[in-house]
Design a protein around this nucleic acid. Structure first.
Lengths: 236, 236
DNA sequence: CGGACAATTGAAGCCATTCAACATCCGTGG
DNA sequence: CCACGGATGTTGAATGGCTTCAATTGTCCG
């Protein structure tokens, strides 16, 4: 692609509240080896953890994007999440102690890792650290909780409109305009995520374009009428 | 109903890891007033918080059950969660600082409340307390995350079978046999939760009975063939 | 006992899937 | 740089599942 993968600012990253406490200023040198791994690059298609792997660190997407998938009992992949720049990946593994999904890069990406095991050996104020972990987890709960509304609506148009809006909102929240973005995932990934057939995703996207809500060219999406899109997501 | 609402043991409650730290033994007297409110009774139909209310405490269901709902832009209620004895309610409000749902008792119930504001004024070991809060939140993330698989599957049979299984598993986890239980919510509540029409819920439940997977009489459900039910939830 | 509400059942219509064919994109190697 | 081939995306037609509307039955609570 011609578009360079944009690296988000630390201040717009989901891990920032922890990083800030750990290493802003001169303190980074005091961290145990391997505690904070900045901007590890990940090639397109590469996985950063597999379902069943032990949970080992907090991971935030620094640039690019990931999909998380589970295997159905029949052995086919089901997409359960997309993770954009600035967002966390793999938080579902914290309490069980192991990941329940496999995370794969949808494009050339970069991640930051913060090791949980080493975290509490640092000399930094643990109270504050834990409070910020609690805040991060609370945000994850709120996000996953809010998903219900967008996934369990009958009309495929509503679901797809809501999906596009969610990407718009998530990018906007991280300080990047979401009016124009690239869908790094395939149509069938979207279909799997929303519980639709990939053909249906194609059809609806074309329809949204005919209705002048979006302009879509391959993977590039431009939101043409935000209000109209929101109306469709809400009302049908 | 003839069936008496069963109060779960503290050791099977989602809040227990916190309560244990706070007041087992003789320490309860030292807690600030209103920190821990044990077994507040809630009448059927009563709400314990509304969407938009400020988050004020960790809430666990001690007995009975609740539904959490949001209002669609058209003003109709959408069920986004059911909360059984031993489970937490309202955790989605922690990070935003306000609830995004309204929680209503589906039957005569009881809850325990643990005030977040007063929590850290106690003389108890805050580190350990925070660690347990983190564990609780992690569990919530894992639960909500796992929902995706059961909600986003096309066949209504699969969704309903998975729904019944989830109740079975959740009761089992809390030390109550889930082979025989009472559905405290209405058919239309289930329908709203799963994104189906209430008529479809009725039809599928009757069909599951005809297939000898369950026995159902009004709200009373008995699982007759667990393996078969699991097979349907997984394969179709 | 009666009335309101909830649940079941039937019939018709629509929407999404499925299967199939075709078009386009994109990386690869000539 | 262009041609090629596999992968991905689009489009069409037919089937089937779920919804909708409607009527009936059943249940709960005054």
């Amino acid at each position: 692609m011609k578009t360079k993968s944009l690296e988000i600012e630390c201040q717009n990253c989901g891990l920032d509240s922890l990083c800030e406490l750990l290493d802003y200023g001169e303190s980074e040198a005091r961290l145990p080896e391997g505690t904070l791994l900045r901007s590890q690059t990940v090639a397109r298609g590469e996985t950063i953890f597999h379902a069943g792997d032990p949970f080992h660190s907090f991971i935030a997407v620094k640039s690019g994007s990931f999909k998380t998938t589970t295997l159905t009992p029949q052995g086919q992949e089901r997409v359960v999440g997309f993770h954009l720049a600035g967002e966390m990946v793999g938080t579902e593994g914290i309490a069980p102690g192991s990941y329940s999904t496999t995370a794969r890069a949808l494009e050339a990406s970069a991640i930051c890792e913060l090791s949980l095991g080493n975290l509490f050996k640092t000399g930094c104020p643990v109270n504050e650290l834990q409070n910020r972990v609690i805040a991060i987890l609370g945000n994850e709960i709120a996000f996953y909780h809010g998903l219900h509304g967008t996934l369990v609506r009958q009309s495929s148009e509503q679901r797809l409109a809501a999906f596009l809006l969610s990407i718009y909102n998530r990018m906007d929240k991280r300080g990047i305009s979401g009016m124009d973005f690239r869908l790094s995932m395939s149509r069938s990934d979207i279909a799997s995520y929303l519980g639709l057939a990939s053909e249906t995703v194609s059809r609806i996207l074309m329809k949204l374009q005919k209705l002048d809500m979006i302009k879509i060219r391959n993977k590039q999406v431009q939101i043409a009428n935000l209000d109209f899109l929101e109306e469709m997501a809400n009302c049908g």
